[in-house]
Design a protein around this nucleic acid. Structure first.
Lengths: 246, 246
DNA sequence: CGATTACTTTGATCCAGATCAATAAGGGAC
DNA sequence: GTCCCTTATTGATCTGGATCAAAGTAATCG
């Protein structure tokens, strides 16, 4: 993950300008992007949009975490996506969001008004290629997650979720000296349950079990320490090699 | 879903040229696409690629059905995607497939060698926009499916699967005069189980139950008749309005 | 045509995770 | 500090779907 520093300040804040785009865009493409860009902030728990509502912008996550959830007629809910920094939200060519979007932690979005963004897309192959890449990544992650939902046991689900978060978090601080890691769990037990297709009681029980078995250590409810990452991975049920991008 | 007939024969066979692309492409972009295009055929059951293998082409489905599946260390498998005609397979910018691709029925793919296709992508905004659209559709479908896997009961899962297939099939023949439909189930019980995160016994039991309750009628094992589509939908657990694209 | 093989249905039992219910532990605000 | 409220843990019981086991039904092939 090399971040070319065409313009270091902006590259750090707007994922659509990150990497690929920055490296290859013409300066005036970037100017165009900047002209229609603005930031929005949400507090933890606050809704971004409801399913069925108009979403008049597309955005990418700068900091914080957003959840995509779907709700059934009788109120059962399933989280169908977890947007971490640099993930993309919304889609060009569609006005309506098919799921609820909620800020799970304090959240900053880098937004682009839809119309100008779409226009820009049709003119600049690099921007749309970058967007395609991001979308394909999210699709891979979604499919990875289907395996988790469809076939894993409760214990494996918890281990998988912790592994994914650990990987994303420690990628940011990239301080994973060896096989240990330490980070903050950004989700409540309920949110985890919602993501994993479990109940919050089961989540709690399995976390306790992993703690008891020495796979993870908890300081308070959120601060996690993983003494040996390989042990955690062996609990996910995944293939030793290929497992888990996201 | 209007299919503009820029060139009716080709539009019917190559989904990447369908719709959006056909309507907006310059003739020479289409020529470029045609130059690097070729067809491949697979028999039902035959593998297209294995997880981890090189995939030196990208493709879209012309006829038949392909399944994307992932396998866990201990052999548990989960289908993570079902590619129906016009769906896209493979991704520009990545050589390796992260899941097994198998022909579920006899299958024809419209293939493009990777390199020339990527080059074309970077030059023609319309083609990459079209591809982006298709990818976003698949992403939506994947997320829809996460709800099915995470929160639905076995009966609801079966009803959802039948509803999705019915919608895709009858879209093709668009002969759904009123609320009835009749079509071929293209999957074995085992493949359904694999997609739904169930066992084949449970699939069989639930299909029998839906038959007993008059929601569906079977002639042989594969031919399905749905007397009233709305009854089937009420069994999916989805919201009356917003439910199930894909 | 019967034989072999693959697919499907149905039955009996078991167990992982849901559900119901209570208690404990943080974490602000005052 | 105490009170209130949200989040988390733990226990007891129940149940939907898995698992194990056995027929039943098509399809394919010599």
């Amino acid at each position: 993950m090399d971040i070319p520093t065409f313009n270091s300040r902006d590259c750090g804040t707007c994922p659509i300008r990150h990497r690929a785009v920055c490296a290859r865009c013409e300066p005036d493409e970037l100017l165009e992007l900047d002209k229609i860009k603005y930031y929005r902030n949400y507090e933890a728990g606050q809704p971004v949009v409801w399913s069925g509502d108009q979403l008049d912008f597309v955005a990418s996550v700068v900091t914080g975490i957003a959840a995509l959830t779907q709700t059934m007629e009788d109120g059962r809910t399933q989280m169908v996506g977890l947007l971490l920094p640099s993930d993309f939200l919304g889609r060009p060519g569609r006005e309506i969001t098919p799921f609820d979007v909620t800020a799970v932690s304090d959240l900053t979005l880098c937004c682009f008004r839809r119309r100008p963004f779409e226009k820009l897309l049709s003119l600049t192959p690099n921007v749309s290629q970058r967007l395609l890449e991001m979308t394909l990544d999210e699709l891979d992650a979604a499919r990875e997650w289907m395996l988790v939902l469809g076939r894993k046991t409760a214990r494996e689900k918890i281990a998988s979720l912790i592994a994914i978060i650990a990987r994303r978090e420690s990628k940011l601080q990239s301080s994973q000296a060896e096989n240990a890691a330490r980070f903050e769990l950004p989700l409540t037990r309920e949110a985890m349950a919602d993501y994993l297709g479990l109940t919050l009681e089961t989540v709690s029980r399995q976390i306790s079990a992993l703690k008891r078995d020495g796979v993870i250590e908890l300081m308070g409810n959120r601060q996690v320490h993983i003494p040996d990452f390989r042990v955690l991975l062996s609990e996910t049920g995944d293939d030793a090699d290929g497992g888990m991008p996201a």
